[in-house]
């Protein structure tokens, strides 16, 4: 880890915090008491909370929208700087579909994220995908407020941190 990288990352944090609305669902600390400056920019927590691990999708869609692309650009940057982590991309669907179709749709969403990250320079072999269909909703109400947060991909970073 170098001090130069740390400075750059903190600048990025400040830039992000200027954005008022949070289009990415489960992003960035704050409500749970985590302040952004407390997170080590090389930590997985920083990736999950500060950059954001979750990309949202439109109804029955697996194409990335602008907000999703902006987030994935940051994910790609971080992942390129931390090359030894293993990455699992989960694809999820809301409850308004049949079980098998939602599994296939979740797989498409995960693959769309995978393809985009590869286009940003990540190697294919680092990125595994899995679909959960409608099996693991994040929010449990039965209206669009919850469904919009459940139509998602989650980039799950595990394993040893880059040094």
């Amino acid at each position: 880890m170098t001090s130069v990288k740390a400075v750059v990352a903190i600048v990025a944090v400040l830039g992000l915090s200027a954005c008022g609305d949070d289009p990415f669902g489960k992003n960035k600390g704050g409500s749970d008491g985590i302040t952004q400056s407390n997170l080590d920019p090389h930590s997985i927590a920083y990736f999950n909370e500060t950059i954001g691990d979750t990309v949202l999708f439109d109804v029955d869609q697996s194409t990335l929208n602008e907000a999703g692309i902006a987030l994935l650009n940051q994910q790609a940057e971080w992942l390129l700087e931390h090359p030894v982590n293993s990455v699992l991309i989960e694809g999820h669907a809301d409850e308004q579909g049949t079980r098998e179709y939602n599994l296939a749709l979740g797989a498409r969403r995960a693959a769309a994220v995978q393809s985009y990250l590869v286009s940003r320079g990540l190697t294919d072999a680092r990125l595994r995908t899995i679909t959960y269909g409608k099996e693991r909703p994040l929010e449990i109400c039965s209206d669009e407020a919850c469904w919009s947060k459940n139509r998602r991909s989650v980039t799950v970073v595990t394993g040893g941190l880059g040094s």
Partner: peptide, 25 residues
Amino acid sequence: GMTFAPRFSPDGSRVILSLTERGNT
């Protein structure tokens, strides 16, 4: 690859299912 949606053939000798590779099912 991920596999799901299996069913037996009527004679029980085969299983039909869907398989997902690179996001395509």
